[in-house]
Write a protein that binds this DNA or RNA. Structure first.
Length: 117
DNA sequence: GTTGTGACGACTT
DNA sequence: AAAGTCGCCACAA
């Protein structure tokens, strides 16, 4: 049985909608913020199935290493890169600089990374 | 039910 | 730094 609770998808969509222009968040960071630690893949799934009418800033979501999670060169990859650069998010060697564009939450997670949790 | 795949992430080589 | 492994879990075949 167990599909994802539709309410969780809604929470994820709302959280993604909060990402300010010119900033990025990680899949795992979004998951943590909605109270679903270790559920990064669910965030990816949520974006994949998100209704287009929501107009989510999905391009502001990258993986924990700052990389776009589409195959390099794919149409989706190019679209995401283009949208990011258009709002001032520069990619260095295919990476977003979290220190300058990442949300505080994600930064903390990257710097602290307490053992075990 | 099992297997493979994926818009992930943490850890280990 | 890059690749491999494992945990995670939704979904299609």
């Amino acid at each position: 049985m167990a599909g994802p609770d539709p309410k969780l998808l809604e929470r994820i969509w709302k959280e993604v909608a909060k990402i300010p222009r010119g900033q990025v968040a990680s899949y795992g960071g979004i998951a943590r913020r909605v109270g679903l630690p270790r559920r990064a893949r669910l965030v990816g799934h949520a974006l994949k199935v998100a209704p287009g009418h929501l107009r989510l800033p999905w391009h502001r979501v990258v993986n924990a290493r700052g990389k776009i999670s589409f195959p390099p060169g794919s149409p989706s990859y190019r679209l995401q890169r283009e949208r990011l650069e258009r709002e001032g998010v520069r990619l260095r060697n295919g990476r977003v600089n979290f220190a300058s564009h990442g949300l505080a939450d994600d930064l903390d997670a990257l710097l602290w990374r307490p053992r075990g949790a």
